[in-house]
């Protein structure tokens, strides 16, 4: 019980931080929105013309938005990693560690806050997508599935970014560590163009990496199709990433700050 109470306290602390310093939250909405606008209005024409059957006959914006949603989830990793690192280098984690506070509470508080922020940012980005012509055909169950995958992906990346924040020596380093999650992996997935359109080696990577499974599941559900096996693959990836991130974070937290 105290573990839950402590995690709730830490979650509340993080939410207060977000309210008091909303710049990071705004940035993690603005960044995916910029990509959305860039790909819809600037690059979308030629790309949309070239993706062919992968679009299932829908406009490019409908192909794109699931990828942008995935990017929005990934954009939140920077905030979490930076906040964890700030805690670690600021000495307050040492204070918590000398108190009879349940060990993982600080970290689960960060993960919870990441998920809460992600639900907010993905909702905001979805609203923006609707404004620029995104027309989802998802059923009610489909939307539930979308929310579930967003949630699972957010938990997975949150634990990973907590670990990044714990092992980073500086706040700048904590931010840099999340850049591959925010940009490299989304671009090397089927978020913007189908994996089939990529050069052979990269194509193999894109087809087998977790971000593609996530984006393909979101794309299917938002288009009103069942996610099928891809959905389970995405959830399995999320579970694996969450577990790895959790174990890594726990080990790093036990090792201490110095």
């Amino acid at each position: 019980m105290t573990a839950l109470a402590d995690a709730t306290t830490m979650f509340g602390r993080e939410l207060r931080h977000t309210v008091r310093y909303p710049l990071m939250l705004i940035a993690s909405i603005v960044s995916p929105v910029v990509f959305l606008l860039l790909f819809v209005y600037v690059l979308g024409g030629p790309i949309g013309g070239g993706i062919g059957a992968a679009a299932h006959g829908a406009p490019y914006v409908d192909f794109l938005v699931p990828g942008i949603l995935m990017m929005t989830v990934a954009a939140g990793t920077s905030t979490t990693s930076i906040n964890v690192c700030t805690d670690m280098t600021g000495g307050i984690i040492d204070r918590f560690r000398t108190m009879a506070v349940s060990r993982g509470a600080v970290l689960s508080g960060h993960v919870g806050a990441n998920v809460a922020r992600t639900l907010l940012t993905t909702a905001a980005v979805t609203a923006m997508a609707l404004l620029v012509g995104f027309r989802p055909e998802a059923t009610a169950a489909g939307w539930l599935g979308v929310a579930g995958i967003v949630l699972a992906f957010s938990v997975a990346l949150a634990w990973l970014s907590v670990a990044f924040g714990l092992v980073a020596k500086t706040v700048a380093g904590a931010n840099s560590a999340t850049l591959p999650l925010q940009f490299l992996l989304p671009f090397l997935s089927s978020a913007f163009v189908p994996a089939a359109a990529m050069p052979a080696g990269i194509r193999w990577f894109a087809e087998h990496q977790p971000f593609t499974a996530v984006v393909e599941s979101l794309r299917a559900l938002l288009a009103g199709r069942p996610a099928g096996t891809t959905g389970y693959v995405a959830l399995a990836w999320c579970a694996a990433i969450a577990l790895a991130g959790y174990l890594w974070a726990r080990a790093a937290f036990r090792r201490g700050t110095r």
């Binding site: 600021g90 000495g91 040492d94 204070r95």
Partner: peptide, 15 residues
Amino acid sequence: GIGVTGQFSAVDNLL
């Protein structure tokens, strides 16, 4: 039973 005030201030700067 203990309280610790370390060498570097351990206050939450956003609270």
